[in-house]
């Protein structure tokens, strides 16, 4: 152990330095110059990349999210984000019970496809009772039925250059007045709103609990929950689970899409990887 007399800097100087450092950080925080500083945020995002790698490392590829019993299903599953898209084309499809709706599958695939709800329902189906965790902090358990995303991807034939699966949606986020998603965040979108989109990697895309869900609790998926089709992921937060999915696109990079961060909320500062 070193003696204090041998310290290269005087104790007093160290104390002063520490006090000034901590004090200025606190003061600067008052106008958010530190908390929102782009340089500091880019350092902080290295931790987010570390979380992604660490979780991918310790989480076996096909390890399932916990599943629950019928008796655990929430009596009142909260509908969040958009709950009623106002897009005229979407309203027209909804008026016809989505009989004319087609899921477009394109981008880096061998065989671009268009699938009707009946065709999706004819594919192998999977049902799960899983927990939905919102980034805000609440959780609801629901029973979801749908087509595993892998069934669709395998039929379309994913090209080797593809790295991400992107979901393009019918909603723009001011739609349906999300009552408790931060108003400050969605206000920053332009007046017409920004189309919702999301992206996932292939670890999640091929995970057995990743569904294109068309039923909630044994009923046809209601509009508030993303009719006719929404994404379900077992191991990430709710904002990754795009509702009102119209088109699936396989891409090598999402840098040229939207704000370049791989999703609607990601473009507003949320992490692309939402496993935490």
């Amino acid at each position: 152990m070193i003696s204090e007399r041998k310290l290269p800097v005087s104790r007093r100087a160290l104390l002063r330095f520490g006090a000034i450092g901590a004090g200025s950080l606190l003061l600067a925080g008052c106008d958010d110059a530190v908390s929102e500083n782009p340089r500091i945020l880019s350092l902080i995002d290295k931790a987010s990349a570390l979380t992604y790698r660490a979780q991918r490392l310790i989480l076996p590829r096909d390890k399932l999210a916990p599943e629950y019993a019928e008796s655990d299903i929430a009596p009142q599953f909260r509908a969040n984000g958009s709950t009623s898209p106002s897009d005229p084309a979407y309203r027209k499809l909804a008026a016809g019970d989505f009989a004319d709706w087609r899921l477009m599958v394109g981008g880096l695939v061998e065989r671009p496809m268009q699938l009707s709800l009946a065709e999706l329902r004819a594919l192998p189906a999977s049902t799960q009772i899983t927990r939905h965790d919102c980034v805000e902090g609440w959780s609801c358990i629901g029973k979801w039925t749908g087509t595993p995303l892998s069934e669709v991807l395998n039929r379309a034939g994913v090209k080797p250059q593809a790295k991400f699966v992107v979901f393009h949606c019918a909603d723009r986020l001011q739609d349906g007045a999300p009552d408790d998603f931060e108003p400050g965040e969605s206000d920053s979108a332009d007046s017409g709103g920004v189309p919702y989109y999301e992206s996932i990697d292939f670890v999640d895309a091929y995970h057995p609990q990743t569904l294109l869900a068309y039923e909630l609790n044994g009923q046809t998926l209601p509009i508030a929950y993303g009719a006719p089709l929404r994404l379900r992921l077992g191991r990430q937060l709710g904002y990754k689970m795009a509702k009102y999915v119209m088109r699936i696109e396989l891409v090598a990079s999402f840098a040229q899409m939207g704000g370049g961060n791989g999703g609607y909320w990601e473009d507003l500062g949320y992490e692309w990887y939402a496993g935490t």
Binding site: D32, S35, E36, L41, I44, A47, S48, E185, E271
Partner: peptide
């Protein structure tokens, strides 16, 4: 200080 969940989360996990 302002209501900003995204920034709060990034700081918290860092």
């Amino acid at each position: 200080g302002e209501q900003d969940l995204a920034t709060g989360r990034r700081w918290h996990f860092f």
